[in-house]
């Protein structure tokens, strides 16, 4: 797991999830940049509320997708960490 289960990811001020009505789909909008989300990316981001920790998010996704927690923790942990590197998410340790 690239994130600790007790870590709490959240969206910093100025970043929001928005529907892209022009092309369909959802984007994460940050100042001067945007991230287009695929279905799995949207599933991860939509579970980030600044309160739930990473372990709870992974458990929820595992139940929804019927996939092993280890696989989901690895993939979503990398995804969240990559967004945190770009300052589009914050990780509260």
């Amino acid at each position: 797991m690239s994130l600790a289960a007790a870590s709490v990811p959240r969206m910093p001020r100025g970043v929001r999830l928005q529907e892209d009505r022009v092309r369909g789909g959802w984007v994460l909008l940050a100042p001067e940049r945007a991230i287009a989300l695929d279905a799995v990316g949207l599933a991860i981001i939509s579970r980030i509320d600044g309160a739930r920790d990473f372990g709870a998010i992974v458990a929820d996704l595992s139940e929804t997708y019927g996939a092993p927690e280890a696989e989901i923790a690895r993939d979503s942990g990398e995804f969240i960490a990559a967004l945190a590197e770009r300052r589009i998410l914050e990780i509260m340790v």
Partner: peptide, 13 residues
């Protein structure tokens, strides 16, 4: 819907 590795795609705004 199956789990697939999420793709991070930056788009111009």
């Amino acid at each position: 819907m199956a789990w697939t590795k999420p793709i991070l795609r930056e788009v111009a705004c």
